[in-house]
């Protein structure tokens, strides 16, 4: 079972912004506590305006499930800066299990590297995919995604800039001969977030040619139609990354296998990283 995220985005956490803002008496210059708070608020707001990050570790969700299959899922990516984005790297490690013929679940932890915020544990994620019907039963194979994500900072202190979020939506797949087409519409609902629109929309898509099990090639796209303030923003304010992907599955002894996919994505808008290199490796056993 392969499972990637909607263009996942969050505000950068403004960690040490308040550290140097204790009121300090001076004969020349006195910053009062209220002024300090106002400055911190302004700084955070300005930062938020420019820090609607795009997760470089996004991967494509697919609606098919194999019961009993366990997998260790390692995924990551690095995105360069763009006109209105900062360079950022993300990675995640998860354990997934096909509980039934129609339900796959995975728990993951995610890390983030972003300048100047630094490196750190980013979030905990619980991913669930429901396969609706059987592959080939209908003109389009259908699945449903339901994810819960809890930011790590939210667990640690009260200065978080976002809260728990859920992400859900239909996962669609169609086989046309040796070509497989995926298109997912994903809705992210943020709770406890006062920084940006609480409901965000995105999509992801892939077209691949099934040349052979160890090597397949295609094109991937990850898009976000929402901006910092609007659920449906003008195209120029959306994020869209498109590029080639190489995929495959390598058989190993004792019913084990290693699935991989690498993509090099190009941003098409000012709110997208100029380039993103992303990967996913799944050890299935």
């Amino acid at each position: 079972m392969t499972c990637c995220c909607l263009t996942n985005f969050r505000l950068v956490r403004g960690g040490g912004s308040t550290a140097n803002c204790e009121p300090r008496a001076s004969t020349e210059f006195i910053i009062g506590r209220a002024t300090c708070r106002a400055l911190v608020g302004l700084a955070l707001l300005t930062e938020a305006e420019h820090a609607l990050a795009v997760n470089a570790a996004d991967y494509l969700f697919t609606p098919t499930i194999t019961q009993g299959e366990r997998e260790i899922d390692l995924y990551g990516g690095t995105g360069s800066s763009g006109d209105k984005t900062r360079s950022e790297s993300n990675a995640g490690l998860g354990f997934g299990y096909g509980v039934t013929q129609h339900w796959f679940t995975e728990l993951a932890i995610e890390y983030r590297w972003q300048s100047p915020v630094g490196t750190g544990l980013d979030a905990f994620e619980w991913e669930n995919i429901l396969q609706i019907g059987e592959p080939g039963q209908w003109p389009v194979d259908i699945g449903l995604l339901f994810n819960v994500e809890k930011p790590y900072e939210a667990s640690r202190n009260s200065h978080q800039t976002e809260g728990t979020s859920i992400r859900f939506g239909p996962l669609l797949q169609k086989d046309i001969g040796k070509v497989e087409v995926n298109f997912n519409i994903l809705v992210t609902r943020f709770f406890q977030s006062s920084q940006f629109s609480s409901t965000q929309f995105g999509y992801q898509s892939q077209i691949k040619y099934r040349y052979g099990r160890p090597l397949e090639v295609g094109v991937q796209a990850f898009g976000r139609v929402s901006s910092h303030a609007q659920a449906w923003a003008p195209y120029a304010e959306q994020a869209l990354r498109v590029g080639p992907v190489v995929l495959g599955r390598l058989a190993m002894p004792k019913e084990r296998s290693l699935s991989y996919n690498f993509a090099f994505l190009f941003g098409t808008t000012a709110h997208s990283p100029d380039t993103t290199l992303r990967f996913q490796a799944e050890y299935e056993f």
């Binding site: 098919t64 194999t66 019961q67 009993g68 299959e69 096909g98 013929q101 059987e134 592959p135 080939g136 039963q137 086989d175 497989e180 099934r210």
Partner: peptide
Amino acid sequence: NREKHIPPKSKITLF
């Protein structure tokens, strides 16, 4: 493009 697990003493349907 099919991969299905079939538990013991049970049936599944493929399309």
